[in-house]
Each structure stands twice: as structure tokens, then as C-alpha cells.
Simulated scan of single mutants.
Amino acid sequence: MNGTRPLSVVLSLAAVLVVFLLVVWIGPSFNESLQLDETALIRFVFVGVGLLAVFVVYWFTRDNAAWEVGTREVVYMAIGAALYAVFSYLFNGTVFVVPSVSQVALRPAIAIPMFFGYAFGPVVGFFSGAVGNMFGDALTGFGLYPQWSVANGLVGMISGMIALYVDKKRAMDAVLYISAALAAVTTLIWILNPTLENLMFFDVDAGIFGDAAISTFAGLSAVVGFVLVVLIRLIFRENIDLAAAVTWAMLGNFIGIGFASISDIWVNGYSPSVAIVGEFLPAAGPNMIFAAILVPILIGAYNALQRQIGR
């Protein structure tokens, strides 16, 4: 095992924490809405939990070359984070207003950390998602949610975990079974609590600020996303890498967004059902839809570029 690898991974995770602290420290000087409230400490407790979880996964799979962090990976981290921050800003209702579909807000930028995790490894995916989302929130100016930024990092990291497995097909099938169970359980929670509010849906013109009862489509969005991913799996059954990339991105959404939603049980005092129905479903479902649609496009473009430059 490369003896420098643990240090490089630790430094990458430390860099994420430093960036978070700098944004929290400097951000309010430019926009008062970026000032954290009394929940700042518990939010950063969950940031620490997320970073520790990444390190634990790394430690148990540290012999795999996917965790290598060199100059090339550092460059991709910066590019991925910058792209995610800019596109998050553009599509978070500031420049390009992408209409919601039956309360399901569409955020195509999530495909960026998914792709960077797949193409350049789990550390690059994590950094791109976490730092990119933190800067995206700062640019948007709606507030800072550090534990949700870590969640976006987990989406990118888990999308890159495909590289940890030699038998990609077998691992992908296992991920599908796990995701099917998670989709079923979370959707069942919505079925049992159909009148809970969609905390992720805002319509200023209609006077809705996360207080409208969740729609049927939003409640079923995780199932819709899962079905789309399964279709991609079937359509690209001869292209295991592409199918696996989309499948792992789906699991990343379940775990990453689930982590953030569950953290709000302690951060915001939500009940478990409110966290799942009001936050998880309307956030994770659309992300999976974009995983199924945009990740194959990005991978296809990347592979074409690789062939063109002869790599």
C-alpha cells in the first residue's frame, strides 16, 4: 500500500472542513442570510460524522487504487467543485428558474458530483459535491446548511465507489436490491403519512413556503427514480460501467440525502416521518431522475473525448 495515501485522503477531508469554516466565517460579511443560527454546532457535529464516515469507508478499502489523491485528482476536485457551485447557483432559482413538476423541484446540477465521482474516484466526488454545494449555497444567498453539503459530498463519493469492485455487475445488482428496499420503505412512510408537508417546495407567487401537503408525484418520486434507473440498467446491460455508474449514483442519493434528512431530526427537531416525507423524498427522488438521464450523457461525452485525445 502507498504509505502517503492515508495522509492525502485525510488532507482532502480536512480541506473540506476548512473550506466550510471559511465560508461560514466570511459569508455573513457579504450576506447576512449566510449567518448560522444557534444550530451551528449541531450542524457541524453532523459534518464531522459525515467526514468520519468517509474516512471509515476509506480505511476498510484503503488498498484500492481508487482512493489515490495526486495532483491530477486535486485539479479535478477544484474543477468539479467550481462547476457544481456555478451550476447550483444558476439553477437554484437565481438565473434559470427550472419549473417544479407537481412539487418536485428539478436540480440538474446534482449530476456533476455523480459524474466526477464515477470518472475520477470517490475522493474527487466527495470534494466536488461537498465544497461545490457549500459555495453554491453561499452564491445563492439563501442560507448555509453544512450537513446538507456533506450529504452532497456523499452522493459524489458513493457514485465513485463503483471503482472499489472487480465484479461490477454483481456489486451493481446488490446495490439495486438495497435501493429497492430503501425506495419501498421510504415510500411506505409517505403512504402512511400522506398529509405531511413538502418542506422542499417553495412557490413565492402562490404564498407557499414549504407548508403545502406533499403531492402524490413527490411522494412517489423515489419509486419513479428507481424505475428509471432500472430501465437504464436494462437498456445498457451490455455497458456495465455506465449502468453501474447510474446505479451507484442512485445509492449515493439514498444515503447522502438520507443522511441530511435524518440530521434534521436533531437540527430542526423534525419527527422521523417529517424528515423522510417532507425532505428526503422530494429531494432524493428528483436527484435519481437526473442520475438516470444526465449521468449517461456526461459519461458518453467523456468517453468520446477520451477516444478523441487517445487516452
Results as ranks from 00 to 15, higher is better:
140 T>V: 03
150 V>E: 11
181 A>G: 10
198 N>A: 02
145 Y>E: 04
195 T>P: 00
166 V>K: 15
140 T>K: 13
130 A>F: 11
158 I>R: 06
161 M>K: 06
155 V>P: 09
155 V>N: 14
176 L>E: 02
167 D>Y: 08
176 L>P: 03
201 F>I: 06
179 S>Q: 10
164 L>M: 05
156 G>A: 10
130 A>Q: 13
191 I>E: 06
164 L>C: 08
185 V>S: 15
140 T>I: 01
187 T>E: 00
177 Y>I: 15
131 V>Q: 01
167 D>H: 07
186 T>C: 14
175 V>W: 08
165 Y>S: 11
194 P>K: 12
194 P>A: 08
187 T>G: 11
169 K>I: 02
181 A>N: 06
192 L>M: 13
138 A>F: 11
177 Y>P: 04
138 A>D: 10
189 I>W: 00
180 A>W: 09
190 W>P: 09
187 T>F: 15
131 V>S: 02
189 I>C: 12
199 L>D: 14
138 A>G: 11
188 L>Y: 10
146 P>V: 00
134 M>G: 04
129 G>V: 05
144 L>D: 02
149 S>A: 15
187 T>P: 08
192 L>Q: 12
152 N>V: 00
181 A>E: 12
152 N>I: 00
149 S>T: 13
196 L>Q: 05
177 Y>A: 14
199 L>V: 04
186 T>Y: 13
151 A>M: 07
129 G>E: 01
132 G>F: 07
198 N>G: 11
171 A>Y: 09
155 V>I: 13
172 M>V: 00
132 G>Y: 03
152 N>E: 12
136 G>I: 07
143 G>A: 05
138 A>V: 00
175 V>L: 08
169 K>L: 13
188 L>F: 10
196 L>E: 05
162 I>F: 03
178 I>C: 08
142 F>E: 05
148 W>E: 06
197 E>P: 00
192 L>W: 03
193 N>S: 08
130 A>H: 11
182 L>E: 15
189 I>K: 09
158 I>V: 15
161 M>R: 04
175 V>K: 01
171 A>N: 09
179 S>T: 07
173 D>K: 14
154 L>D: 10
131 V>C: 01
158 I>D: 00
153 G>P: 05
163 A>P: 03
157 M>T: 04
193 N>Y: 06
195 T>S: 04
139 L>G: 10
168 K>N: 07
164 L>R: 02
185 V>P: 15
143 G>H: 10
143 G>E: 01
180 A>C: 11
157 M>S: 09
201 F>M: 07
177 Y>H: 10
161 M>N: 07
168 K>P: 03
153 G>V: 01
174 A>E: 05
139 L>N: 08
153 G>R: 04
134 M>K: 07
156 G>Y: 00
141 G>N: 04
187 T>V: 13
167 D>V: 00
182 L>H: 10
157 M>R: 12
193 N>I: 01
198 N>K: 13
195 T>E: 07
150 V>D: 11
184 A>L: 15
200 M>D: 07
184 A>I: 14
192 L>D: 05
133 N>T: 14
144 L>W: 12
144 L>G: 02
187 T>S: 14
132 G>W: 01
172 M>S: 15
171 A>V: 06
156 G>H: 04
177 Y>L: 14
190 W>H: 13
166 V>P: 01
156 G>W: 00
178 I>L: 13
144 L>P: 03
